[in-house]
Design a protein around this nucleic acid. Structure first.
Lengths: 196, 196
DNA sequence: AGAATAATGGCACTCAGCGCCAAAAAGATA
DNA sequence: TATCTTTTTGGCGCTGAGTGCCATTATTCT
Protein backbone atom coordinates (compact mmCIF):
# COMPACT_ATOMS: atom_id res chain seq x y z
CA UNK A 1 0.00 0.00 0.00
CA UNK A 2 2.93 2.29 0.53
CA UNK A 3 4.03 1.81 -3.07
CA UNK A 4 1.49 2.94 -5.65
CA UNK A 5 4.05 3.23 -8.44
CA UNK A 6 3.36 6.35 -10.35
CA UNK A 7 6.43 8.35 -9.67
CA UNK A 8 10.02 8.46 -10.75
CA UNK A 9 12.54 6.72 -8.52
CA UNK A 10 14.73 8.47 -5.99
CA UNK A 11 14.29 10.14 -2.64
CA UNK A 12 11.31 12.49 -2.34
CA UNK A 13 11.91 16.21 -2.17
CA UNK A 14 11.63 17.35 1.41
CA UNK A 15 10.41 20.87 0.59
CA UNK A 16 9.45 23.09 -2.37
CA UNK A 17 9.74 26.66 -3.57
CA UNK A 18 6.41 27.68 -2.07
CA UNK A 19 7.20 26.44 1.42
CA UNK A 20 10.59 28.08 1.42
CA UNK A 21 9.06 31.32 0.21
CA UNK A 22 6.44 31.32 2.97
CA UNK A 23 8.91 30.49 5.72
CA UNK A 24 11.30 33.13 4.43
CA UNK A 25 8.67 35.85 4.18
CA UNK A 26 7.58 35.22 7.75
CA UNK A 27 11.13 35.76 8.95
CA UNK A 28 11.72 38.73 6.66
CA UNK A 29 8.71 40.50 8.16
CA UNK A 30 9.69 39.65 11.71
CA UNK A 31 13.37 40.56 11.50
CA UNK A 32 13.90 42.33 8.23
CA UNK A 33 15.56 40.90 5.13
CA UNK A 34 19.17 41.65 5.98
CA UNK A 35 18.93 40.33 9.51
CA UNK A 36 17.49 37.01 8.40
CA UNK A 37 20.08 34.37 7.59
CA UNK A 38 19.73 31.40 5.28
CA UNK A 39 20.59 29.34 8.35
CA UNK A 40 17.48 30.61 10.11
CA UNK A 41 15.24 29.96 7.14
CA UNK A 42 16.61 26.44 6.83
CA UNK A 43 16.16 25.85 10.53
CA UNK A 44 12.57 27.08 10.52
CA UNK A 45 11.83 24.54 7.79
CA UNK A 46 13.78 21.74 9.40
CA UNK A 47 15.94 21.57 6.32
CA UNK A 48 19.65 21.85 5.64
CA UNK A 49 21.05 25.21 4.64
CA UNK A 50 22.68 23.56 1.65
CA UNK A 51 19.29 22.44 0.38
CA UNK A 52 17.93 25.99 0.19
CA UNK A 53 20.56 26.85 -2.37
CA UNK A 54 19.27 24.06 -4.60
CA UNK A 55 15.88 25.75 -4.77
CA UNK A 56 16.99 29.38 -4.92
CA UNK A 57 20.35 30.42 -6.35
CA UNK A 58 20.62 33.17 -3.78
CA UNK A 59 18.83 34.66 -0.81
CA UNK A 60 18.01 37.65 -3.00
CA UNK A 61 16.03 35.44 -5.34
CA UNK A 62 13.58 34.21 -2.74
CA UNK A 63 11.33 37.29 -2.80
CA UNK A 64 10.95 37.00 -6.56
CA UNK A 65 9.33 33.58 -6.42
CA UNK A 66 8.46 32.17 -9.83
CA UNK A 67 9.27 35.27 -11.87
CA UNK A 68 10.82 33.39 -14.79
CA UNK A 69 7.53 31.58 -15.25
CA UNK A 70 5.63 34.86 -15.53
CA UNK A 71 8.04 36.12 -18.14
CA UNK A 72 7.04 33.33 -20.49
CA UNK A 73 3.40 34.34 -20.10
CA UNK A 74 4.37 37.95 -20.68
CA UNK A 75 6.07 37.08 -23.97
CA UNK A 76 3.10 34.98 -25.06
CA UNK A 77 0.72 37.79 -24.25
CA UNK A 78 2.72 40.21 -26.37
CA UNK A 79 2.85 37.77 -29.26
CA UNK A 80 -0.94 37.50 -29.23
CA UNK A 81 -1.60 41.21 -29.76
CA UNK A 82 -2.94 41.93 -33.27
CA UNK A 83 -0.47 43.68 -35.55
CA UNK A 84 -2.98 46.48 -36.09
CA UNK A 85 -2.27 47.74 -32.60
CA UNK A 86 0.65 50.21 -32.62
CA UNK A 87 3.80 48.83 -30.95
CA UNK A 88 3.95 51.18 -28.02
CA UNK A 89 0.26 50.65 -27.42
CA UNK A 90 0.71 46.87 -27.52
CA UNK A 91 3.57 47.02 -25.06
CA UNK A 92 1.69 49.29 -22.73
CA UNK A 93 -1.40 47.08 -22.74
CA UNK A 94 0.68 44.02 -21.94
CA UNK A 95 2.55 45.79 -19.17
CA UNK A 96 -0.78 46.66 -17.63
CA UNK A 97 -2.02 43.08 -18.04
CA UNK A 98 1.21 41.69 -16.62
CA UNK A 99 0.59 43.64 -13.44
CA UNK A 100 -3.09 42.86 -13.12
CA UNK A 101 -3.45 40.58 -10.12
CA UNK A 102 -6.72 39.21 -8.83
CA UNK A 103 -7.94 40.53 -5.53
CA UNK A 104 -7.05 37.31 -3.80
CA UNK A 105 -3.35 37.40 -4.52
CA UNK A 106 -3.07 41.16 -4.27
CA UNK A 107 -2.21 41.47 -0.55
CA UNK A 108 0.67 39.05 -0.94
CA UNK A 109 1.84 40.84 -4.07
CA UNK A 110 1.85 44.09 -2.17
CA UNK A 111 3.96 42.60 0.59
CA UNK A 112 6.35 41.12 -1.94
CA UNK A 113 6.81 44.35 -3.85
CA UNK A 114 7.15 46.44 -0.72
CA UNK A 115 9.93 44.16 0.42
CA UNK A 116 11.68 44.35 -2.94
CA UNK A 117 11.35 48.09 -3.39
CA UNK A 118 12.12 49.05 0.20
CA UNK A 119 15.17 46.88 0.79
CA UNK A 120 18.35 48.31 -0.75
CA UNK A 121 19.93 44.87 -1.10
CA UNK A 122 16.92 43.75 -3.09
CA UNK A 123 16.64 46.96 -5.09
CA UNK A 124 20.13 46.20 -6.31
CA UNK A 125 19.43 42.58 -7.11
CA UNK A 126 16.23 43.57 -8.92
CA UNK A 127 18.28 45.07 -11.69
CA UNK A 128 19.03 41.55 -12.88
CA UNK A 129 15.39 40.52 -12.90
CA UNK A 130 14.37 43.75 -14.56
CA UNK A 131 16.90 43.07 -17.28
CA UNK A 132 15.19 39.79 -18.13
CA UNK A 133 11.83 41.56 -18.19
CA UNK A 134 13.17 44.25 -20.48
CA UNK A 135 14.57 41.66 -22.83
CA UNK A 136 11.07 40.35 -23.46
CA UNK A 137 9.98 43.84 -24.50
CA UNK A 138 13.12 44.49 -26.53
CA UNK A 139 12.66 41.29 -28.49
CA UNK A 140 9.02 42.07 -29.19
CA UNK A 141 9.62 45.66 -30.25
CA UNK A 142 12.56 44.63 -32.40
CA UNK A 143 10.46 41.99 -34.14
CA UNK A 144 7.59 44.40 -34.70
CA UNK A 145 9.82 47.16 -36.06
CA UNK A 146 12.09 44.83 -37.96
CA UNK A 147 15.16 45.96 -36.04
CA UNK A 148 17.88 44.29 -34.01
CA UNK A 149 16.95 43.76 -30.31
CA UNK A 150 20.06 45.65 -29.28
CA UNK A 151 19.12 48.73 -31.26
CA UNK A 152 18.36 52.05 -29.65
CA UNK A 153 14.59 52.01 -30.05
CA UNK A 154 13.93 48.49 -28.71
CA UNK A 155 16.17 49.20 -25.75
CA UNK A 156 14.49 52.53 -25.14
CA UNK A 157 11.14 50.78 -25.19
CA UNK A 158 12.33 48.27 -22.61
CA UNK A 159 13.90 50.81 -20.29
CA UNK A 160 11.07 53.28 -20.54
CA UNK A 161 8.41 50.65 -19.94
CA UNK A 162 10.31 49.60 -16.85
CA UNK A 163 10.60 53.22 -15.74
CA UNK A 164 6.87 53.56 -16.05
CA UNK A 165 6.17 50.34 -14.19
CA UNK A 166 8.53 51.02 -11.32
CA UNK A 167 7.29 54.60 -10.90
CA UNK A 168 3.77 53.24 -10.75
CA UNK A 169 4.69 50.61 -8.18
CA UNK A 170 6.29 53.22 -5.97
CA UNK A 171 3.17 55.33 -6.18
CA UNK A 172 0.94 52.31 -5.56
CA UNK A 173 2.88 51.29 -2.48
CA UNK A 174 2.72 54.78 -1.04
CA UNK A 175 -1.09 54.88 -1.24
CA UNK A 176 -2.76 52.12 0.79
CA UNK A 177 -6.00 51.84 -1.19
CA UNK A 178 -4.84 52.68 -4.66
CA UNK A 179 -5.30 50.58 -7.77
CA UNK A 180 -2.18 49.56 -9.64
CA UNK A 181 -3.86 49.25 -13.03
CA UNK A 182 -5.25 52.77 -12.84
CA UNK A 183 -1.89 54.15 -11.79
CA UNK A 184 -0.13 52.45 -14.69
CA UNK A 185 -2.59 54.01 -17.13
CA UNK A 186 -2.36 57.36 -15.41
CA UNK A 187 1.43 57.21 -15.55
CA UNK A 188 1.39 56.74 -19.31
CA UNK A 189 -0.74 59.86 -19.64
CA UNK A 190 1.47 61.84 -17.31
CA UNK A 191 4.55 60.74 -19.21
CA UNK A 192 3.15 61.98 -22.50
CA UNK A 193 2.19 65.31 -21.03
CA UNK A 194 5.54 65.66 -19.21
CA UNK A 195 7.30 65.29 -22.54
CA UNK A 196 4.87 67.80 -24.08
CA UNK B 1 63.84 71.31 6.28
CA UNK B 2 61.86 68.12 6.68
CA UNK B 3 59.18 69.93 8.69
CA UNK B 4 57.59 72.86 6.87
CA UNK B 5 54.52 72.84 9.10
CA UNK B 6 51.57 73.36 6.87
CA UNK B 7 49.57 70.23 7.46
CA UNK B 8 47.37 68.77 10.12
CA UNK B 9 49.02 66.37 12.52
CA UNK B 10 48.75 62.58 12.33
CA UNK B 11 50.12 59.87 10.15
CA UNK B 12 50.10 60.56 6.42
CA UNK B 13 47.67 58.67 4.26
CA UNK B 14 49.45 55.88 2.46
CA UNK B 15 47.20 55.90 -0.62
CA UNK B 16 44.22 57.73 -2.12
CA UNK B 17 41.05 57.06 -4.10
CA UNK B 18 42.74 57.62 -7.44
CA UNK B 19 45.57 55.17 -6.85
CA UNK B 20 43.20 52.50 -5.63
CA UNK B 21 40.97 53.04 -8.62
CA UNK B 22 43.87 52.72 -11.06
CA UNK B 23 45.28 49.60 -9.42
CA UNK B 24 41.83 48.06 -9.29
CA UNK B 25 40.99 48.80 -12.92
CA UNK B 26 44.24 47.23 -14.06
CA UNK B 27 43.34 44.02 -12.26
CA UNK B 28 39.70 44.14 -13.36
CA UNK B 29 40.78 44.26 -16.98
CA UNK B 30 43.34 41.51 -16.55
CA UNK B 31 41.22 39.06 -14.58
CA UNK B 32 37.67 40.35 -14.67
CA UNK B 33 35.80 42.03 -11.84
CA UNK B 34 34.50 38.96 -10.07
CA UNK B 35 37.81 37.14 -10.14
CA UNK B 36 39.68 40.04 -8.59
CA UNK B 37 39.74 40.02 -4.80
CA UNK B 38 40.16 42.95 -2.47
CA UNK B 39 43.17 41.09 -1.16
CA UNK B 40 44.81 41.26 -4.60
CA UNK B 41 44.09 44.94 -5.01
CA UNK B 42 45.53 45.64 -1.58
CA UNK B 43 48.59 43.57 -2.34
CA UNK B 44 49.23 45.31 -5.65
CA UNK B 45 49.24 48.62 -3.79
CA UNK B 46 51.30 47.36 -0.88
CA UNK B 47 48.48 48.26 1.44
CA UNK B 48 46.37 46.37 3.96
CA UNK B 49 43.04 44.94 2.82
CA UNK B 50 41.38 46.65 5.74
CA UNK B 51 42.56 50.02 4.48
CA UNK B 52 40.77 49.67 1.14
CA UNK B 53 37.46 49.53 2.96
CA UNK B 54 38.19 52.92 4.47
CA UNK B 55 38.39 54.48 1.02
CA UNK B 56 35.57 52.54 -0.65
CA UNK B 57 32.63 51.11 1.28
CA UNK B 58 32.57 48.09 -1.00
CA UNK B 59 34.36 46.53 -3.91
CA UNK B 60 31.34 47.43 -6.04
CA UNK B 61 31.90 51.11 -5.34
CA UNK B 62 35.39 51.26 -6.80
CA UNK B 63 34.31 51.51 -10.45
CA UNK B 64 32.08 54.46 -9.62
CA UNK B 65 34.92 56.64 -8.41
CA UNK B 66 33.81 60.07 -7.22
CA UNK B 67 30.19 59.84 -8.30
CA UNK B 68 28.74 61.62 -5.26
CA UNK B 69 30.83 64.63 -6.15
CA UNK B 70 29.36 64.77 -9.65
CA UNK B 71 25.86 64.62 -8.24
CA UNK B 72 26.36 67.90 -6.47
CA UNK B 73 27.43 69.51 -9.74
CA UNK B 74 24.42 67.95 -11.42
CA UNK B 75 22.05 69.49 -8.89
CA UNK B 76 23.76 72.87 -9.19
CA UNK B 77 23.53 72.73 -12.96
CA UNK B 78 19.80 72.07 -12.77
CA UNK B 79 19.29 74.89 -10.32
CA UNK B 80 20.95 77.32 -12.72
CA UNK B 81 18.57 76.70 -15.62
CA UNK B 82 16.25 79.70 -16.21
CA UNK B 83 12.64 79.10 -15.21
CA UNK B 84 11.52 79.99 -18.74
CA UNK B 85 12.86 76.64 -19.94
CA UNK B 86 10.17 73.93 -19.65
CA UNK B 87 10.92 71.35 -16.94
CA UNK B 88 11.42 68.35 -19.16
CA UNK B 89 13.61 70.40 -21.45
CA UNK B 90 15.68 71.62 -18.50
CA UNK B 91 16.15 68.09 -17.22
CA UNK B 92 17.09 66.79 -20.62
CA UNK B 93 19.65 69.52 -21.21
CA UNK B 94 21.28 68.84 -17.86
CA UNK B 95 21.33 65.10 -18.46
CA UNK B 96 23.16 65.77 -21.69
CA UNK B 97 25.56 68.15 -19.97
CA UNK B 98 26.14 65.69 -17.13
CA UNK B 99 27.34 63.14 -19.64
CA UNK B 100 29.48 65.49 -21.68
CA UNK B 101 33.08 64.48 -21.06
CA UNK B 102 36.09 66.09 -22.65
CA UNK B 103 37.99 64.05 -25.16
CA UNK B 104 40.82 63.50 -22.74
CA UNK B 105 38.81 61.69 -20.12
CA UNK B 106 36.56 59.94 -22.61
CA UNK B 107 38.54 56.72 -23.10
CA UNK B 108 38.67 56.10 -19.36
CA UNK B 109 34.97 56.89 -19.06
CA UNK B 110 34.23 54.35 -21.75
CA UNK B 111 36.21 51.68 -19.92
CA UNK B 112 34.48 52.53 -16.69
CA UNK B 113 30.99 52.37 -18.16
CA UNK B 114 31.68 49.20 -20.07
CA UNK B 115 32.79 47.56 -16.87
CA UNK B 116 29.70 48.75 -15.01
CA UNK B 117 27.20 47.87 -17.72
CA UNK B 118 28.75 44.53 -18.68
CA UNK B 119 29.30 43.06 -15.23
CA UNK B 120 26.12 41.64 -13.67
CA UNK B 121 27.40 42.21 -10.14
CA UNK B 122 27.92 45.87 -10.98
CA UNK B 123 24.68 46.22 -12.91
CA UNK B 124 22.95 45.21 -9.72
CA UNK B 125 24.92 47.55 -7.52
CA UNK B 126 24.32 50.39 -9.96
CA UNK B 127 20.69 50.49 -8.94
CA UNK B 128 21.77 52.18 -5.73
CA UNK B 129 23.84 54.81 -7.51
CA UNK B 130 21.10 55.38 -10.05
CA UNK B 131 18.66 55.96 -7.20
CA UNK B 132 20.78 58.83 -5.92
CA UNK B 133 20.97 60.28 -9.41
CA UNK B 134 17.21 60.04 -9.82
CA UNK B 135 16.67 61.76 -6.52
CA UNK B 136 18.41 64.85 -7.86
CA UNK B 137 15.98 64.94 -10.76
CA UNK B 138 12.96 64.18 -8.59
CA UNK B 139 13.78 67.02 -6.25
CA UNK B 140 14.25 69.44 -9.10
CA UNK B 141 11.07 68.47 -10.93
CA UNK B 142 9.09 68.53 -7.71
CA UNK B 143 10.35 72.01 -6.91
CA UNK B 144 9.62 73.28 -10.41
CA UNK B 145 6.11 71.82 -10.48
CA UNK B 146 5.38 72.60 -6.87
CA UNK B 147 4.77 68.96 -6.01
CA UNK B 148 6.12 66.48 -3.47
CA UNK B 149 9.33 64.72 -4.60
CA UNK B 150 7.65 61.36 -4.02
CA UNK B 151 4.76 62.17 -6.33
CA UNK B 152 4.12 60.26 -9.53
CA UNK B 153 5.34 62.89 -11.98
CA UNK B 154 8.69 63.68 -10.32
CA UNK B 155 9.39 59.97 -9.97
CA UNK B 156 8.42 59.34 -13.58
CA UNK B 157 10.77 62.11 -14.64
CA UNK B 158 13.61 60.52 -12.69
CA UNK B 159 13.01 57.01 -13.91
CA UNK B 160 12.43 58.00 -17.52
CA UNK B 161 15.52 60.21 -17.63
CA UNK B 162 17.52 57.28 -16.34
CA UNK B 163 15.94 54.97 -18.90
CA UNK B 164 16.98 57.36 -21.61
CA UNK B 165 20.50 57.72 -20.30
CA UNK B 166 21.12 54.01 -19.84
CA UNK B 167 19.69 53.16 -23.26
CA UNK B 168 21.99 55.72 -24.74
CA UNK B 169 25.01 54.35 -22.91
CA UNK B 170 24.27 50.85 -24.14
CA UNK B 171 24.07 52.14 -27.68
CA UNK B 172 27.22 54.22 -27.25
CA UNK B 173 29.19 51.25 -25.96
CA UNK B 174 28.08 49.06 -28.81
CA UNK B 175 29.37 51.50 -31.43
CA UNK B 176 33.12 52.16 -31.14
CA UNK B 177 33.22 55.62 -32.68
CA UNK B 178 29.87 57.01 -31.66
CA UNK B 179 29.23 60.24 -29.81
CA UNK B 180 27.36 59.99 -26.53
CA UNK B 181 25.91 63.49 -26.66
CA UNK B 182 24.40 62.89 -30.08
CA UNK B 183 22.96 59.60 -28.99
CA UNK B 184 21.33 61.15 -25.94
CA UNK B 185 19.67 63.79 -28.10
CA UNK B 186 18.68 61.20 -30.67
CA UNK B 187 17.21 59.01 -27.97
CA UNK B 188 14.93 61.81 -26.79
CA UNK B 189 13.62 62.19 -30.32
CA UNK B 190 13.13 58.46 -30.72
CA UNK B 191 11.29 58.30 -27.43
CA UNK B 192 8.84 60.99 -28.46
CA UNK B 193 8.17 59.31 -31.76
CA UNK B 194 7.90 55.86 -30.16
CA UNK B 195 5.17 57.22 -27.92
CA UNK B 196 3.52 58.83 -30.99
C1' DA C 1 17.02 -8.58 -1.87
C1' DG C 2 19.62 -5.78 -4.47
C1' DA C 3 20.42 -2.35 -8.21
C1' DA C 4 19.46 2.13 -9.91
C1' DT C 5 18.13 6.79 -9.13
C1' DA C 6 17.51 11.22 -7.03
C1' DA C 7 17.41 14.43 -3.24
C1' DT C 8 19.59 15.60 1.06
C1' DG C 9 22.76 17.81 3.98
C1' DG C 10 27.19 17.90 6.21
C1' DC C 11 31.98 19.64 5.63
C1' DA C 12 35.29 22.65 4.33
C1' DC C 13 36.46 26.35 1.70
C1' DT C 14 36.62 31.42 -0.44
C1' DC C 15 35.51 36.00 -0.16
C1' DA C 16 33.13 40.47 1.22
C1' DG C 17 32.51 43.24 4.92
C1' DC C 18 32.77 44.93 9.80
C1' DG C 19 34.07 45.96 14.74
C1' DC C 20 37.88 46.40 17.61
C1' DC C 21 42.23 48.00 18.88
C1' DA C 22 47.19 48.26 19.17
C1' DA C 23 50.89 50.15 16.55
C1' DA C 24 52.94 53.54 13.37
C1' DA C 25 53.79 58.11 11.81
C1' DA C 26 53.22 62.64 11.75
C1' DG C 27 52.87 67.56 14.02
C1' DA C 28 52.80 70.36 18.41
C1' DT C 29 54.71 71.74 22.72
C1' DA C 30 57.88 72.58 26.27
C1' DT D 1 65.16 66.14 22.65
C1' DA D 2 61.38 64.04 24.85
C1' DT D 3 56.62 63.71 25.26
C1' DC D 4 51.84 64.52 24.04
C1' DT D 5 48.25 64.60 20.55
C1' DT D 6 46.24 63.49 16.36
C1' DT D 7 45.36 60.58 12.51
C1' DT D 8 45.89 56.64 9.65
C1' DT D 9 47.08 52.07 9.27
C1' DG D 10 46.44 47.22 9.27
C1' DG D 11 46.19 42.91 11.77
C1' DC D 12 42.84 39.72 14.01
C1' DG D 13 38.74 37.46 14.36
C1' DC D 14 34.20 37.12 13.32
C1' DT D 15 29.57 36.59 10.42
C1' DG D 16 27.23 35.22 6.48
C1' DA D 17 26.57 34.19 1.39
C1' DG D 18 27.69 31.04 -1.84
C1' DT D 19 30.10 26.65 -3.85
C1' DG D 20 32.22 22.07 -4.75
C1' DC D 21 32.43 17.57 -3.08
C1' DC D 22 30.52 13.42 -1.56
C1' DA D 23 28.64 10.11 1.62
C1' DT D 24 23.97 9.15 3.21
C1' DT D 25 19.16 8.41 2.78
C1' DA D 26 14.83 7.46 0.66
C1' DT D 27 12.48 5.61 -3.21
C1' DT D 28 11.34 2.98 -7.30
C1' DC D 29 12.57 -0.79 -10.46
C1' DT D 30 13.87 -5.73 -11.52
Amino acid sequence: MTTTTNRSPGRRAVTDHGSIERAAFRLFEEQGFDDTTMEQIAESLGVGRRTLFRYFPSKNDIPWGQFDQSLRDFAAQLASVPLEVPVSEAVHQCVVAFNDFDEQSLPQHRIRMRLILDTPTLQAHSALRYAAWRTVIEDYVAARLNMRPDGLVPRLAGHVSLALAVSSYEQWLSEPDSDLTSILRLAMGELRSYLD
